[in-house]
Simulated assay, not measured.
Amino acid sequence: MATRAGLTERTFYNHFADKREVLFPGQDVFVAGIREAVTAAPPEQSPLDAVLAAFTAGSDWFDRHREAALRR
């Protein structure tokens, strides 16, 4: 990818930590939101229900990033 852009791999990694950072911008925010929602789940809730609730609450993220996901 870097070569096609006229750059060396070293130049690419000076600007980005890894390829995921380029392909999935905003991933850290999404993961942090899911983590916070699971952590905030009531203790009596099963782990699976906590994860399901977190993803359901964050489902609008998928809607907002649908076009980019389809291109990838």
Rank of each mutant, 00 (worst) to 15 (best):
M1W: 06
M1L: 04
M1G: 14
T3K: 13
T3Q: 10
A5F: 08
G6R: 12
G6L: 07
L7I: 03
E9D: 09
E9S: 05
R10S: 12
T11N: 12
T11L: 13
F12W: 10
F12V: 13
Y13V: 03
Y13P: 02
N14Y: 13
N14Q: 15
H15S: 15
H15N: 13
H15R: 10
H15I: 05
F16N: 03
F16S: 08
A17T: 10
D18W: 03
K19R: 14
K19D: 15
R20H: 13
R20D: 14
E21L: 02
E21R: 06
L23K: 10
F24Y: 12
F24M: 07
P25G: 12
P25L: 13
G26A: 10
G26D: 01
G26C: 02
G26K: 06
Q27F: 15
Q27C: 10
Q27A: 10
V29Y: 07
V31Q: 07
V31P: 05
V31Y: 01
V31D: 12
A32Q: 08
A32H: 03
A32C: 03
A32K: 12
G33V: 01
I34D: 09
R35S: 10
R35P: 02
E36S: 10
E36D: 13
A37H: 05
V38C: 10
T39D: 14
A40Y: 02
A40F: 01
P42G: 15
P43N: 03
E44H: 15
E44R: 11
E44P: 04
P47M: 07
P47F: 14
P47W: 09
P47R: 12
P47C: 11
L48S: 10
L48K: 12
L48V: 14
D49C: 08
D49F: 10
A50H: 02
L52Q: 13
L52G: 08
A53T: 07
A53G: 08
A54V: 10
F55W: 13
F55R: 00
F55P: 00
T56L: 11
T56E: 15
T56Y: 06
A57Y: 00
S59N: 11
S59G: 08
W61C: 00
D63L: 02
D63S: 06
D63C: 01
R64H: 04
R64K: 02
R64M: 08
H65P: 01
R71I: 14
R72D: 09
R72I: 12
R72G: 10
